[in-house]
Amino acid sequence: MTDSVKPRTRAADKRRRLTAAAARVLHEQGVERTTLADIAHAADIPVGNVYYYFKTKDELVRAALSEHSAHLAELTASLDELPDPRERLKALIEAWVGRRDTAARYGCPTGTLAVELDKRADGTLDVEAGVVIRQLLDWAGHQFRAWGRPDPDGLAVTLVSAYQGMSLLANALRDPDIMTREGARLLQWLDSLETPA
């Protein structure tokens, strides 16, 4: 490896670590309570270096949203390997339930961020959070469409709304069992939908 490649590699690694730390810390603490120093500490990078990669906290929020989008794309790509759209949707629900302790402590990473950003009067970050949620809705709608269900986009809204609701309640009540119970109810709901002839 040449000397000129090493600094670029280190810079890319620092940026990646900052982005991952931003996604995690903003989820755990919220935008208003998080400082650039909090993110730098979580990324194990000197706080002064943060400004080299991100000039403002909003840029870090944008990076965190990008990280959430990438995680969602990774998850849905792995689910797309399942042969049946109903099984893909069920596996999505099981993945949500598998993160019940995190949801009970902090809520849905993108949903809570979208709600918090909507309260701010100074930008378009709330719209960018909505893009990540739209990504999930589009994927779920595609699954219902592939399954041959009528009103696939409406069913996608029902599914994602149920997830956001159970995540919010699990968080508000600090009760991960809500995710377990409501996840089981969602699985039953999917099983109750008849496969078209």
Score class of each variant (00 low, 15 high):
150 P>G: 02
156 A>D: 04
138 D>E: 14
130 G>N: 04
122 D>P: 11
50 V>E: 06
118 D>K: 04
70 A>S: 12
67 E>S: 04
31 V>D: 12
126 D>Y: 06
43 A>I: 01
133 I>Q: 11
59 E>F: 06
194 E>L: 15
44 D>G: 04
107 G>D: 10
161 S>F: 08
106 Y>D: 10
50 V>R: 02
141 G>L: 01
83 P>L: 09
144 F>W: 05
193 L>Q: 09
142 H>V: 09
62 R>H: 13
40 A>P: 06
12 A>L: 00
190 L>F: 11
114 A>P: 04
119 K>Y: 11
120 R>A: 12
39 I>V: 12
73 A>L: 08
140 A>C: 15
182 E>C: 15
176 P>I: 00
60 L>V: 01
168 L>H: 10
11 A>H: 05
146 A>W: 10
100 R>V: 08
44 D>W: 03
112 T>H: 04
57 K>I: 00
186 L>E: 04
115 V>W: 03
53 Y>L: 00
187 L>I: 13
132 V>N: 01
56 T>I: 05
161 S>V: 08
171 N>Y: 14
13 D>M: 07
185 R>C: 08
137 L>A: 10
181 R>W: 11
119 K>V: 09
49 N>F: 04
162 A>D: 08
68 H>S: 05
52 Y>C: 03
192 S>F: 08
37 A>Y: 06
159 L>H: 01
144 F>L: 03
44 D>T: 00
145 R>E: 14
177 D>F: 04
151 D>F: 15
155 L>Q: 08
87 E>W: 09
74 E>N: 03
122 D>M: 07
172 A>G: 08
193 L>F: 11
135 Q>V: 13
73 A>Q: 11
165 G>R: 01
166 M>Y: 14
77 A>K: 11
133 I>N: 05
98 G>E: 02
127 V>Y: 14
62 R>V: 09
80 D>K: 08
81 E>Q: 13
98 G>M: 03
164 Q>W: 12
53 Y>T: 00
8 R>F: 00
123 G>N: 14
135 Q>C: 14
7 P>H: 15
84 D>I: 10
105 R>N: 10
124 T>I: 10
